[in-house]
Amino acid sequence: MSWWSYLTSSENYWGSDGILNLIREHVAFSGFALLIVVVIALPLGVTLGHFHRGSVIVLGLANLGRAVPSFGVIVIFAVSAWGLNFATLTATLVLFALPQVLTNAYTGVAEADSATVQAARGIGMGHWGVLWRVELRSAVPLIASGIRSAAVQIVAVATIAGYAGAGGLGQIVFRAYASNLPGEQVGGAILVVALALAVQIVLGLVQRTVTPAPMRRTGLIFRNRVALPQPAAA
């Protein structure tokens, strides 16, 4: 069966192993992982950024996240005592995406225009005022970018769950690989790409909506902004 006929046969979409259900699973555990990432990384990054503290930790985490291959992490969890289940899968996805959001939140807040911050303090804004009215607003594009790239990465990495039989779109790819069905294998990969692109575009629209009007610059598909935190000045 070619990938085209696989994707265009309606019977492949229904049932518990059908494409629609696998997409639902994929989105569910990706979304859950993203939620955890945001709940942890956003307050932490924003707080550290406001006080300009902990850039070494943030930088280290960011580099660690980039250096550790996700497949390796997932295998470590798979062979560990816990095995690959919903919890370990989520933990893997969180570990993988957290540095991205943390770094962007930290950098967005810490590197809000220092003149604006100085002026805001000088005219009588307290910590909350400066954070809410100045730093967070200017950090919105970077924070949104971080969440968006994290989401896309989570969706892509979550494919690997299929390797351990944990469901999601990866299940199509790995089962087809095991049964030597290249058409279905390619079809599954196309579905993952399509889902990732859809997430990128939807979150792009969200990002555009939440960004203050004069700061709207980011394109819908390309130009995710990735922050590289600078080591703190002495």
Partner: peptide, 20 residues
């Protein structure tokens, strides 16, 4: 300090207007 500064005008070289 916050109340004090609200009663004192403040102008800096880089202006520092709120861009948004």
């Amino acid at each position: 300090p916050v109340q004090l500064r609200r009663g004192i005008g403040y102008v800096i070289q880089q202006v520092g207007l709120f861009p948004h």
